[in-house]
Write a protein that binds this DNA or RNA. Structure first.
Length: 269
DNA sequence: CTGTGAGAC
DNA sequence: GTCTCACAG
């Protein structure tokens, strides 16, 4: 074998070694990280993810979230509720699970045990009924916040049902929701999970003609008022939370829509 | 729909 | 921990 042939073979070996590393070992790495909450999944519209004030955004198959470690809950949960997501299937409620994708450690469900508060879903289980997996995923503790039962099963539940009504009527909506994590809050459990004094929900519809938004801010109590009494501007939620919503929109449009607290484009049937 | 809790294994 | 059943807003 000539010297030149040896060098050629050696070169080929190196090239294939590098190629093999890049294209096989790394592919294996990628396969392993699926499900670790780092990738935007099918049912999350990345385009409308809000900003994170905490630096810890986690993606699941059916929703994304920004986790606030000091409050042991998400500052927001965001997901697209497609018309086709709506389903009548009746899945059995699974057990709540600690979200392993939250690297700082998501809250243990035991914090809620005998606390007097519900484990309240941010992304409702009923919004993810298109599959058992998507439904069960909403029972991760990163999607849970302490809520009074009267509030959760009352006005908040009414609002969640209205969102599903709109998702059907307007061919899907994009939803961002969470508790307002500021001010003096009660805490529950060993990990001191904060009990928000207010909850918000922000919606955008881009599928039924003119782009429209609506935002709700509710005190953490089961007030018996019509839903539209809780409508506020998106700007006011941003001011309260420090979160920037829908920044992907063209500025002029964003500014106009977020300043408005009008709900005339939304049907409250 | 939204949930909690007790009791058996 | 898992599973079923009863119960409540």
């Amino acid at each position: 074998m000539s010297k030149k042939t040896k060098y050629t073979l050696l070169s080929l070996i190196i090239v294939f070694a590098v190629y093999g590393y890049e294209h096989f070992l790394k592919v294996e790495e990628q396969a392993e990280v699926v499900g670790d909450g780092k990738e935007v999944k099918n049912n999350t519209n990345e385009y409308f993810l809000p900003t994170s004030t905490t630096g810890q955004i986690v993606h699941h198959e059916g929703y994304s979230l920004s986790y606030s470690e000091p409050h042991e809950q998400a500052e927001w949960v965001a997901y697209e509720l497609k018309k086709s997501d709506l389903s009548n299937s009746n899945f059995k409620r699974p057990y709540f699970e600690i979200d392993a994708a939250v690297k700082t450690g998501a809250a243990n469900w035991r914090n809620y045990k005998n606390s007097g508060y519900d484990r309240g879903h941010l992304c409702p289980a009923a919004d993810r009924k298109y599959s058992q997996a998507a439904h069960d995923e909403t029972f991760l503790t990163s999607n849970i916040t302490p809520q009074e039962h009267a509030f959760n099963s009352g006005i908040w539940n009414t609002l969640e049902q209205k969102v599903r009504y709109w998702a059907n009527k307007y061919d899907g909506v994009f939803v961002v929701t969470g508790g307002v994590l500021s001010g003096n809050m009660k805490t529950i459990g060993d990990e001191s999970v904060a009990v928000p004094n207010q909850f918000y929900k922000v919606l955008i519809d881009i599928n039924s003609g003119k782009v429209k938004m609506i935002a709700f801010l509710m005190p953490h109590e089961n007030v018996s008022k019509p839903l539209y009494e809780f409508v506020v501007s998106v700007d006011s939620i941003e001011k309260l939370t420090g979160i920037d919503f829908f920044s992907q929109l063209e500025d002029t449009l964003e500014n106009k829509l977020e300043a408005s607290s009008s709900y005339k484009e939304w049907s409250f049937k």
